[in-house]
Amino acid sequence: MKNFLLFYKSSSISGKISMLMIALVFFVAVFGTAFSRHSAFVPSDSAFVPPNTEHLLGTDDLGIDLWAQICEGAKLSLTIGIFSALLSGIAGSFIGIICGYYGGFFDKFVMRVSDILIAIPSLPLMIVMGVFFGAGIQNIIFVLAVFSWTGPARIARSKVISLKTEKHVLVAESYGAGIFYLTFRHFLPEIFPVVMVSFIRLVNRGIVSEASLSFLGLGDPTAKSWGLILNHAISFKGIYFTDFWKWWLVSPFAAITLTVLAISFIARDAEKFLDVKL
């Protein structure tokens, strides 16, 4: 908590605003459904009601309240963002530690695999995997993690390679310390700040990827996610010649853009605060 306050104080204005923004998104995601008067799934008014006091962001083509859908989408986006980042962050760090500590064939093999994963454009492959495994939150998280573990793994590996020649680590080893002891006692505390920054970025990547996948119609078609609202709005025939885009298209777009932007600013400040270079 103290660290967080320090971080908050050291942040730039944009970073502070961003943190408020993310706090707001969190709040909306957790309490959103209680927060909005209407359901995100059941039509509550006629179609295309412009924003008013009853419907803060208006309604969509089925007459479903858009604010409620944005709240519901925040839940989905954050869940996918955070869990995919957690999964890839944790798995990636441990893979990186093992590679860095032992080296040898396993290290070479894993690093070449990660080279391949970095070189392949991930969106087309994610589309293929999305189709293959089918729609569903778990699958999207899994697919995202498969493509995102390489970042944390490389960071952890290079850190461990430099750490294992440090004197205190060598001394610990000479007293018989194994990889588990070293990992928890010496490696993790050093790696944590760096991986933290990469974690924040992975959250962003998760949110954008989920939006793109559901925008392309690969998510659960009846779920409420930002990407899917965008998808429905854009496939509405002649949307640009009607007034509907002003609320139907703009609100999910703003939600995605603001969230992603805010997280980026936080990542930038975190980098400075934790004094790490990626």
Partner: peptide, 17 residues
């Protein structure tokens, strides 16, 4: 970074159409 994020979004919509 934020510009990148934005352009990702834009390229995303280009994929859809």
């Amino acid at each position: 970074l934020p510009i990148l994020a934005l352009s990702m979004l834009l390229s995303l919509s280009a994929c859809g159409s």
